[in-house]
Nucleic acid binder design. Structure first.
Ligand SMILES: [Mn+2]
Ligand SMILES: [Mn+2]
Ligand SMILES: [Zn+2]
Ligand SMILES: [Zn+2]
Lengths: 142, 142
DNA sequence: CCTATATTGATAATCATTTTCATGTGGAGG
DNA sequence: CCTCCACATGAAAATGATTATCAATATAGG
């Protein structure tokens, strides 16, 4: 969280970008979130308190967050790109309920390791991956 | 392949849909393919031999294929949905080169098994999943 | 304070996909 | 073979998410 602010400040500095009122507002709201936000989600929630902020700015800013590594981009097949704050170094993947759209996060080092092996066996150097398990959550399957 | 034709015929029958000239043409071209085709890919290649076929029809037909299980839908993050013929029962996942966009397919029962375990541990019943490893292929990393 | 440069918000433009709708066609039942 | 009609088609318009444009504005360094 605190780390996110610092990382972003650093990134803006490196790239010669500016720290603006809007970027601060969006960053604060984003880092506070614990879910997987679409641009629209964030835009609508900000709009209540800060009516002046433009849709395009939210798009641009979330993309900046992803570029500088404080946001992870997700795509659960509903047609909207979603973002979540990067939880420091530990990567996670997702279980997605196709009924209630709830999302469960999990970490599985064994799977990650096997993925690396697969890649290596094919002479591949991986930069990132995406693993999503779709189905019915406990609640929805009963 | 032959199996694909039969499965589609069956599906149309069940749903009270009709077997049309266009559906036959599209199905034949699709099942012959060995790559991951976007609607546009398929439309453009068909258009040479069959100029009359409409873009919307290709969209509609590929969706039908996915519904009846003879096509798998893929999404490698380039903004276009892609389809590939379902290779009977053996599921595979993908290595995607972010430089040359080549795709390598792999099967890994160990990973699949671990995925099921993860799901079960969370009370999840999975219907399908998506696993993609992104990075540089052998050729592009040298 | 001034200035060069980046940023913003409104709007238009893109791009993939879906819908609409008038016209055409497959195939069940005569 | 015909007829009929639900389903299918193709062209074009509509949609929805995202991106580009551009005039006005704000930031940061000197
Ligand atoms: Mn997550
Ligand atoms: Mn494949
Ligand atoms: Zn659920
Ligand atoms: Zn490559």
């Amino acid at each position: 969280m605190e780390e996110g602010f610092e990382k972003f400040r650093q990134y803006l500095c490196e790239k010669g970008l500016k720290s603006t009122r809007q970027r601060k507002i969006i960053l604060k709201a984003f880092l506070k979130s614990t879910s997987h936000l679409s641009t629209e989600d964030l835009y609508l929630s900000l709009r209540k308190k800060y009516p002046g902020i433009g849709y395009a700015t939210v798009y641009r800013t979330l993309k900046l967050f992803a570029e500088c590594g404080i946001a992870e981009e997700q795509n659960f097949g509903d047609g909207q790109t979603r973002f979540e704050p990067s939880h420091q170094e530990n990567h996670h993947d997702h279980l997605v309920c196709t009924a209630c759209h709830s999302i469960i996060e999990f970490e599985n080092p064994q799977i990650e390791k096997l993925q690396e092996e697969v890649a290596a066996n094919h002479g591949f150097t991986t930069t990132h991956h995406r693993l999503e398990l779709y189905g019915l959550c406990h609640k929805c399957s009963s």
